Amino acid sequence: HDTTVHINGLRIEVHGASEEILKWIEEAARRGVEAEEIKRWVEEALK
């Protein structure tokens, strides 16, 4: 999927993410993980 995830006011563009990654992002956000940190993880995961 190409999608934009909104976390604590930060937009994260996610290209080619699976449902699993999207669920993981939402879970991390709920746990209060910094949005910048999530963004870094997602970029690494999608390389």
Rank of each mutant, 00 (worst) to 15 (best):
residue 1 H to W: 14
residue 1 H to R: 08
residue 1 H to M: 14
residue 1 H to I: 14
residue 2 D to F: 15
residue 2 D to P: 15
residue 2 D to S: 15
residue 3 T to R: 05
residue 3 T to V: 15
residue 3 T to L: 14
residue 3 T to Q: 13
residue 4 T to Y: 12
residue 4 T to C: 14
residue 4 T to M: 13
residue 5 V to M: 11
residue 5 V to E: 04
residue 7 I to K: 02
residue 7 I to L: 05
residue 7 I to H: 04
residue 8 N to V: 06
residue 9 G to P: 05
residue 9 G to S: 04
residue 9 G to N: 04
residue 10 L to I: 14
residue 10 L to A: 05
residue 10 L to G: 08
residue 11 R to C: 11
residue 11 R to F: 12
residue 13 E to M: 03
residue 13 E to I: 05
residue 14 V to K: 01
residue 14 V to R: 01
residue 15 H to K: 12
residue 15 H to T: 14
residue 15 H to N: 12
residue 16 G to H: 08
residue 16 G to T: 07
residue 16 G to P: 04
residue 16 G to F: 07
residue 16 G to M: 08
residue 17 A to S: 08
residue 18 S to M: 07
residue 19 E to S: 12
residue 20 E to T: 09
residue 20 E to R: 08
residue 21 I to T: 04
residue 21 I to A: 01
residue 22 L to A: 04
residue 22 L to H: 04
residue 23 K to S: 10
residue 23 K to W: 09
residue 24 W to N: 01
residue 24 W to I: 03
residue 24 W to P: 00
residue 26 E to I: 10
residue 26 E to A: 09
residue 27 E to F: 03
residue 27 E to Y: 03
residue 27 E to T: 04
residue 27 E to M: 04
residue 28 A to L: 14
residue 28 A to V: 02
residue 28 A to G: 01
residue 28 A to P: 00
residue 28 A to K: 01
residue 28 A to R: 00
residue 29 A to E: 14
residue 29 A to D: 07
residue 30 R to I: 14
residue 30 R to C: 05
residue 31 R to I: 11
residue 31 R to E: 11
residue 32 G to S: 01
residue 32 G to A: 02
residue 32 G to L: 03
residue 33 V to Y: 08
residue 33 V to C: 07
residue 34 E to L: 08
residue 34 E to V: 10
residue 35 A to T: 06
residue 36 E to W: 12
residue 36 E to L: 12
residue 36 E to P: 04
residue 36 E to Q: 10
residue 37 E to A: 09
residue 37 E to G: 02
residue 37 E to K: 07
residue 39 K to R: 12
residue 39 K to W: 09
residue 40 R to L: 09
residue 40 R to E: 06
residue 41 W to M: 07
residue 41 W to Y: 14
residue 41 W to L: 08
residue 42 V to N: 00
residue 42 V to C: 02
residue 42 V to M: 04
residue 43 E to H: 07
residue 43 E to N: 07
residue 43 E to F: 09
residue 43 E to S: 08
residue 44 E to I: 09
residue 45 A to F: 11
residue 45 A to D: 01
residue 45 A to L: 12
residue 45 A to V: 11
residue 45 A to E: 05
residue 47 K to L: 10
residue 47 K to Q: 11
residue 47 K to G: 06
residue 47 K to A: 11
